[in-house]
Design a protein around this nucleic acid. Structure first.
Lengths: 247, 247
DNA sequence: CCCGCAGACCTGTAATGACAGGTCTGCGGG
DNA sequence: CCCGCAGACCTGTCATTACAGGTCTGCGGG
C-alpha cells in the first residue's frame, strides 16, 4: 500500500496526533481505504510520518472512538464496515462539543430570531398560556461546512428578556442561557421520529424532500414546575447518527 | 485528602489502568468524592499506587469517556456534577411497559432464534473475536396488532448458554437475561438514524420500502470489558415516537 | 490597594524502550 | 496430507523522561 501523505506541521499549533488522525480520516472518508481494509501498522505509520508510536496510537484511538476504525489485537487496525459514523452525544450542545473535540469544524448560524406569541404547540410544550410572549430562534448548524442540524427553539420571553436581540452566532444556546440568565437545564424529555422535510427545511439542510431525517422534539426543565425551552430539530442522520449514552 | 486504596494486582490478569479506574470509580459512585471535587493529581495518584503516569492517564481517560469525571488543563480532574449526567428512561422494554400501562395490547413474536458465528459487525460491536458463537434473535413487536418494532439481537453464546432454545414469546428479553442468567445491563450506547427498510423488513413491519423508519443500533454492557448484547432495531415512529428522558 | 509577574503546580504532548500475548504463515516431522 | 510449532508481525501494557502551556497563589513594586 503506497500512500502519499501531507507532511505534519511541527510548529506546535496543532497536536501531531490530531493532524495524523485527520490525514487518516481523509483517506477513509474519501473511500481510498474501503470497509474492512487494514490500515498500515502502527510501526509503519510511525515510520511514514516520522512520529513516535505514542502519536500513532493517540490518533488511532481517536478514530476508534469515532468508530471509523476498529482494532484487533495481534492483527491490526481496520476501516469500520459502517459508513458515515461520527459521534453524536446526548444533548445538542454536548454533541457539538464532541464533534469539535474530534477535530471537526462546527459552525452555528442564526437564521431567524424574533419575539412572538405562543401557538398551540409551544403553549402545550412549555406549559404556558396560549399567546404568551415567546422568543423564537431558528438556527442551522454545520459540521465541516455540511448542514447537519436545523433547530427551531422557543423560550418564554419572561425568562430570557432581551434574548431576541442577543448575538448567538457560533455560540451554544445553552451557554448563553447559563451565562446571561443563569438558567441551567435540570432535565429534558425528547421524542424522536423519522420524517421527510418540507421544501424549505430541505433546502436549508441541502437534501431532497425525500431524504429521511430525524425529527427531535425536546422540552427542557429548570425544575418540576418550570419548563424553559422547547425545540424541534431536524437532523441529518446520514451525516452523524444521533447518539444516546446510558450510564 | 487521605484515601485508603486497595493495592493493585500485578499478576497481569487485569491491566493496572483498569484496576485503578475501578478503584477511583468506586469512590465516585459511593459519593466519597462529590460533584466538582478534585481528584488527586496525576502525579499524586502515580505515587499513591506506585504506577507510572501512563497508567494513571489511561485510567482517567476511561473515566472521562464514561463521563464520570472531567479534566481541565492546568487545574486537574474533577468529578462530574451528577445532574448533567444522562439517564435513559425509555429503553425498548420500558417503552413497551409504558404502552401497556396506557391500555394498549403489546405482543412480541420471535421470528428467528439460532446459533451462529459472529460476523464483522457483531464482532466489532460486542468486542469478541470474529467467528465466536453468538445467539441471534429476531423479534417483531406489535401494538394493538400493528407492527411497531423489528429487532435483531446478537449475544455471545458463552454468556447465555441455551438461549437459542428458550421460549421468548411475549417476554422481555432483558427479563429473561436477568432471571435466567443473572445478567443486568450496567450501561448502553445507542445510535439512531433515519432509514428506509429493505423489502423483507418492510413487509414484516407492513410498510412500504419508502416509509422512513428509525434505525437504532445498541450495545449494552455488563462492565467496561464485557458487552453482552447488541441489537439493531427498526422502529415505526409513525406509530409511537422514540422517547429519551434525560435526568 | 491594585496590578503584574515569578514560580509552583497541573494537564497535554511527545519520544523511547521494553515486554506480554494474540495472529498468521511457512516449514518440517509424522 | 495434516498437524504442530517456530518465528515474524501486530497491538496492548507499562515505565521513564522531557518540555509546552494553562492555572493559581503570593510577593513586591507602583
Amino acid at each position: 500500500m503506497t500512500m502519499t501523505y501531507p507532511r505534519l506541521n511541527r510548529d506546535g499549533a496543532e497536536p501531531l496526533w490530531m493532524q495524523l488522525m485527520r490525514a487518516l480520516r481523509t483517506r477513509i472518508d474519501s473511500g481510498e481505504l474501503g470497509p474492512d481494509q487494514p490500515l498500515p501498522s502502527e510501526a509503519e505509520l510511525s515510520d511514514m510520518f516520522s512520529v513516535s508510536r505514542t502519536v500513532v496510537r493517540e490518533a488511532l484511538r481517536e478514530l476508534v472512538q469515532q468508530r471509523l476504525i476498529y482494532k484487533v489485537k495481534g492483527r491490526g487496525a481496520f476501516v469500520s464496515p459502517r459508513k458515515t459514523e461520527l459521534r453524536f452525544i446526548g444533548s445538542m450542545s454536548g454533541s457539538a462539543d464532541d464533534l469539535r473535540e474530534s477535530g471537526r469544524r462546527v459552525t452555528t448560524h442564526t437564521v431567524r430570531q424574533a419575539l412572538g406569541e405562543a401557538d398551540e404547540r409551544e403553549a402545550a410544550l412549555l406549559q404556558i398560556p396560549l399567546g404568551e410572549q415567546v422568543v423564537r430562534i431558528r438556527r442551522l448548524r454545520r459540521v465541516d461546512g455540511q448542514p447537519w442540524l436545523l433547530v427551531d427553539t422557543a423560550l418564554p420571553a419572561r425568562l430570557v428578556p432581551g434574548l431576541e436581540r442577543a448575538v448567538l452566532e457560533n455560540q451554544s444556546l445553552y451557554d448563553v442561557l447559563r451565562r446571561r440568565y443563569g438558567l441551567e437545564p435540570a432535565a429534558a424529555d425528547r421524542w424522536i421520529e423519522a420524517v421527510f422535510p418540507d421544501r424549505e427545511d430541505a433546502s436549508m439542510l441541502e437534501v431532497s424532500t425525500s431524504t429521511p431525517l430525524l425529527g427531535i422534539e425536546s422540552v427542557a426543565w429548570l425544575d418540576d414546575n418550570t419548563r424553559f425551552e422547547a425545540y424541534y430539530a431536524l437532523h441529518r442522520s446520514d451525516q452523524t447518527r444521533f447518539y444516546v449514552g446510558i450510564r
